[in-house]
Design a protein around this nucleic acid. Structure first.
Ligand SMILES: [Mn+2]
Ligand SMILES: [Mn+2]
Ligand SMILES: [Zn+2]
Ligand SMILES: [Zn+2]
Lengths: 157, 157
DNA sequence: CTCCTTAATGGAAATGGTTTCCATTAACAA
DNA sequence: TTGTTAATGGAAACCATTTCCATTAAGGAG
C-alpha cells in the first residue's frame, strides 16, 4: 500500500494508480469537471456539474475525492471566508495554474493574480528553504491571500 | 453612526468608542483574555476562559465580539484546516505581533515565525501596492501560510 | 443624575456544510 | 474468472456558527 507522499511526478492517470488509488468513474468525472471549469467551486457546485453528467455519483464521493486529490496535491482547497470550502485544480503538468488570491471582504469577490508573482516566487522559495531548515519542516505548499475592498465596495464608503 | 473603516488609529478603549461601538464588560473580558493568552484560540477556548471569570458572558457574544474585533482589525481570524476558526490578537499599538504561520498538515502543529519576515514585508508592501493599483483593491491585510510536515511527522514516512 | 433610544446580550433553536456509518458495488491483482 | 478490499451512495449524525427574540444596559441628551 504505497499510500504516502505521491506528489510531483507524472500526470494524473499514472499519478493516481501509482499511488495505489483505484481509478473510478467518479474520480475521473470530478477531475474532468475541474479541468474544464474556471473559478473556485464548492463541493456542491462540483456535485451539480458532475451529477448532471454522471447521475450516479453521490455528494459524499465528491467530498472524499476532493480530499484525496487535495492530499495528492492535485487540487487546492481554499477558504475565502464564506463558510464553505472551495476547490481548484492546483496545477497542470507544468505548473501553469499556480497563482495567489485577492479577496474582497465585503462582497467576496475573488481575483486570481499571476503577475507580481515572479519576485514573490523567488522570495517564497528562499523563505521555504530557510523556514524548512530552521523549524525542520518539509514544506510542500503555501497560501497567500490579500484581503481588502474591491473597487465597487470601497466606493460605498 | 460612524461604523465604517476604523482601522489603524489609537488603541482600544478609544478605538472602540471612536468607532461607535459600546464598551461592554463582555468585550473587555474577551480582549483581556486574548491579550493574556498565547496561541491560536477557538471561539470555545475563549468562551471557557472568559466564562470562568465572567460567568454571564454567553458563547454567542464571543462569536459576535470576535467578529467585530476582526472587522476592526484588532483580531486575526485564522483557518488551519481543523474545522473551527482560530483567533489571535492582531497587533499591539506598534505592530509587535505580526507574524506568519507554518502548519503541519498531519498533526496540525502550528509554528509562528517572525524571522524571515523582514524581506517578506518589503515584498508584500510592494505587491500590495501593485495589486491595489492594478485591480483597484484597497488592501487591508494578508495571510501567508506555509504547509508541510513537521519534524515529527516527516519521520513517520 | 435621570431618561430614552437602540445597540448589545444570552439562551435556545435552527442552519447547513461536512463527516460518519454501513451495507453494497466494483477495481484490479493474481 | 475470482477474491480481496478499496470505493461508493444514501441516510443519519455532527457540530461550529448563525439566527431569533425577548431582555438588558451603554451612553448621549437634557
Ligand atoms: Mn484561484
Ligand atoms: Mn499565530
Ligand atoms: Zn467587493
Ligand atoms: Zn506534524
Amino acid at each position: 500500500m504505497p499510500r504516502g507522499n505521491c506528489r510531483g511526478q507524472g500526470w494524473w492517470h499514472g499519478k493516481f494508480q501509482g499511488c495505489g488509488y483505484r481509478l473510478t468513474a467518479g474520480r475521473e468525472a470530478i477531475l474532468d469537471i475541474l479541468s474544464k471549469s474556471e473559478g473556485h467551486l464548492s463541493a456542491e457546485d462540483i456535485y451539480i456539474k458532475v451529477h448532471s453528467k454522471y447521475p450516479n455519483v453521490g455528494l459524499t464521493t465528491i467530498y472524499r475525492t476532493l480530499d484525496v486529490l487535495s492530499n495528492l496535491g492535485m487540487v487546492s482547497k481554499l477558504d475565502f471566508g464564506d463558510r464553505r470550502a472551495r476547490y481548484e485544480l492546483a496545477e497542470g503538468p507544468k505548473g501553469e495554474r499556480h497563482h495567489h488570491h485577492l479577496v474582497c471582504t465585503n462582497c467576496n469577490k475573488v481575483v486570481d493574480y499571476t503577475d507580481f508573482i515572479d519576485e514573490e516566487v523567488e522570495l517564497l522559495q528562499e523563505t521555504e528553504k530557510g523556514l524548512g531548515a530552521k523549524y525542520n519542516f518539509k514544506i510542500t505548499n503555501h497560501i497567500i491571500q490579500f484581503y481588502g475592498l474591491c473597487d465597487k465596495c470601497s466606493g460605498k464608503k
